[in-house]
Design a protein around this nucleic acid. Structure first.
Lengths: 336, 336
DNA sequence: TACACTTACCGAAACGTTTTGGATAATGCG
DNA sequence: CGCATTATCCAAAACGTTTCGGTAAGTGTA
């Protein structure tokens, strides 16, 4: 592999000058500069990133730390879109993205910080990390810039990009109420998850605003899991046949719920109306197409990368960025 | 950031010994070794990957070069699954994965080889690369180990992991024939794509085996695109109302076709039977659920990584690995 | 006791860059 | 002409690690 030394030797100049030529410094004549580039091209010179990073003590690399890159995890496409958005922004500013998963971290007993420092990484975007993960706190409390997806930023050098989950959930439930539903169950995610808490609040808020009594028993937690949602919905609907509508904290759970509804011989939306959350690609193809809360994960990823870059460059940033959401009325809700 | 020098200083030993202790060499006493690790932990030492890579002249990194990581590209989940499988294998053998996209390559005028060499990458997995991409040939003809997804390997230091696309397509079409279909259209992908060619061959083969006359006009090319498939299917079915079944070279196109069928007021499967290809998550949720050819992209990714690693370690490998496929009969095919 | 081994350690070079702090020669200006 | 300025270039140090080729002390053996 040719190096700048080779170029220097061939051109009969110093490595300093070669380096400066390659980096477009102004103190090298146009002639030598051209010479250097010609030789570089001819001998197939490619800069060695490791050497560059070593001396520059930085990397132009962003990390994305994901809770799951698992076999069956990608059905909702969220991680993909996040990644895609993040990647596209990073690329536009000449940064690279490297992945790290929580599972591999714990398996190798390597904390997120260790990973980032080892790779000289400028900052990290975190998605789907459990707030009871000790590595998570270590990272967030460090000085490394972090941007969190979907959980509000607290201390440290962190910020977040989310949507207003309370408002979004409220919109969803309010919509059901305008369609004259009064007995609305909720399929929530994990009790500990930030988004679950927010969406719960939104659900409550909507009911309160319309003076509907709240029944905590009609709220179930299905771990954002399709199969669990299927099972728990079945028993929920059996227990409370008066329920006419369901608000689900994720589309995947909504899909599980839809199957449950059909399996106990109820019709969607005539017997049970249902609204999801996320607007994943799948939601458009269910029968009937799912009414849901649209949020743009691609944009979220891009925005997170943008935010992270600002933080790395020590610019002032808002602590929490809220992106838009909107209710997407398809055909899974029926007016009573 | 603490370095091994700091450890050496604190422990009162040489950096050589620290390095050798950290790397579990046998010529350092148990006592000093423990000392080194204790100090490392205490001062929060993290090895600098750039420095390591520089001196070791390698990286423990695999590249995956993708044609698309685009906003709307991920609907079929294939890239995600590939990535996920590849990542999981790489992780298990302590390798890392870095992404590179063809679009960013061309935009930055940086060839795939350049990218790989710059990053000291051991080898690359390529997915969805067009065979008329000049960078592709440059890479494949280089000495860098490459494994291709879905296109047979030719010269150079390359191998491939695919399924037997001819056989798979034949299975799909033969299945339609056993259900007494005799006028079967085909929605194929891109004319130039290797898989399209193979699947075309399989389609022909099945028809010939059952002595059905072939009508090239009933084969259309929709670029693996849902919308194009929608439009082209519409006109195909209008032109040839005698068609009773469609074989699609991808599920995404099948989904577009299904919408077209419904939009011209035909029923699936009673009027038109349809079989797809890929078994993407979506295919399970369409109405009716899509009969398709199942292939395991997660496994494909893992297998590709495995293969690549062998090549990097100079082990002998088979040129082309064929993974299993199977016909998944759901409900989009009707017996005549 | 003399010798060969083994064990535990170390100095210095190397990896390929960038950067610092000049040096040298040419040019402009009064 | 002398001085300051500018345009080019360069030597050497630095980044953090691994590795090569040792050395010195301790151990076992004849």
């Amino acid at each position: 592999m040719p190096t700048i030394k080779d170029i220097a030797r061939i051109a009969g100049i110093s490595v300093t000058t070669v380096s400066r030529a390659l980096n477009h410094y102004s103190d090298v004549s146009a002639k030598t500069k051209k010479r250097v580039f010609d030789i570089a091209k001819e001998i197939g010179y490619v800069p060695n990133r490791s050497a560059q990073n070593l001396v520059k003590r930085k990397n132009n690399t962003l990390a994305i730390i994901l809770s799951g890159l698992e076999r069956k995890g990608g059905k909702d496409n969220i991680v993909y879109q996040l990644l895609s958005g993040m990647y596209s922004y990073a690329e536009s500013v000449n940064y690279e993205v490297v992945l790290f998963t929580t599972s591999s971290a714990h398996q190798k007993e390597k904390t997120y910080i260790q990973f980032c420092k080892e790779h000289n990484i400028g900052g990290a975007v975190l998605n789907g990390i459990r707030i009871d993960d000790p590595y998570f706190h270590e990272l967030v409390n460090s000085d490394l810039p972090c941007v969190l997806i979907d959980v509000l930023a607290e201390g440290g050098n962190t910020s977040s990009v989310t949507i207003d989950n309370i408002e979004a959930a409220k919109d969803a439930v309010a919509y059901l109420i305008t369609q004259n539903h009064r007995t609305i169950g909720m399929i929530n995610g994990r009790k500990e998850a930030d988004v679950s808490i927010q969406r719960y609040k939104g659900y409550i808020k909507a009911l309160k605003q319309h003076h509907i009594t709240i029944d905590e028993d009609k709220i179930i937690y299905a771990d954002f899991d399709e199969v669990k949602a299927y099972e728990k919905t079945k028993s929920l609907l059996r227990r409370y046949p008066e329920i006419t509508a369901l608000f689900c904290a994720s589309d995947m759970m909504a899909i599980g719920a839809m199957r449950a509804i059909k399996d106990i011989n109820l019709r969607i939306p005539q017997d049970i109306s249902i609204v999801g959350f996320d607007n994943i690609p799948l939601s458009e193809y269910t029968t009937p197409p799912l009414t849901t809360i649209d949020q743009d994960f691609y944009k979220r990823g891009a925005e997170a990368a943008k935010q992270l870059l600002k933080m790395i460059q020590q610019e002032k940033v808002e602590k929490n960025i809220f992106l838009e959401h909107k209710l997407l009325a398809r055909h899974s809700v029926h007016m009573l």
